[in-house]
């Protein structure tokens, strides 16, 4: 029930942002289309904690602020490498362990790795993420495991 409500609110907000016309007739169309999509989603059995992870609603923003800071720092590092030329980079493939128990946690971790410039997660096998890193600095930053710990705090 909570998930259905969350999906309805999200879809309505999306409709209101994209529409810009708020006459009664169009608002009725909004309600009709949201009801249709929600019933279709329930029929497809995708309205659950996996598609709408409500339990991380309040812990995720704190993590996102930290991630934004990391992304800005990594951007500056990679931008320096670009202007220094290709002698300054030393591409390498490393393996990191994702200690999160849930699939959601692993997905957030792998996506955060990819979002940070300088590291791209290539493959996830069990608990091991294969990461391609641009240089030693990026790889070392990941190997400290701070991101792993923080994701575990958000989504075990």
């Amino acid at each position: 029930m909570r998930h259905t409500l969350a999906l309805s609110i999200l879809l309505s907000a999306f409709w209101l942002v994209n529409s810009g016309h708020y006459t009664p007739l169009l608002l009725f169309f909004m309600l009709a289309s949201v009801a249709a999509i929600v019933s279709l989603s329930r029929y497809m059995d995708v309205v659950d904690g996996e598609a709408q992870p409500l339990n991380i609603t309040f812990t995720l923003p704190i993590y996102l602020f930290w991630l934004a800071k990391e992304v800005v720092l990594a951007n500056i590092v990679v931008a320096t490498r670009v202007w220094q030329g290709k002698e300054s980079i030393s591409p390498r493939t490393i393996e990191v362990t994702a200690s999160q128990k849930t699939d959601l946690g692993k997905v957030i971790y792998a996506n955060s790795i990819t979002l940070t410039p300088g590291t791209v997660s290539i493959d996830l096998e069990g608990d091991t993420i294969i990461v391609h890193a641009l240089d030693e600095q990026s790889a070392a930053g990941l190997l400290t495991g701070e991101m792993d710990r923080r994701v575990r705090r958000v989504a075990g």
Binding site: V71, V72, N75, V78, A79, V82, G85, K86, I89, P91, T114, L115, T116, P117, G118, T119, V120, H132, L134
Partner: peptide, 18 residues
């Protein structure tokens, strides 16, 4: 500038993020 595909992904993610 970067020499091979996997390094170029990092340059591409530079434009995509910041």
């Amino acid at each position: 500038r970067f020499p091979e595909f996997f390094s170029r992904i990092h340059a591409a993610s530079l434009t995509d993020t910041l």
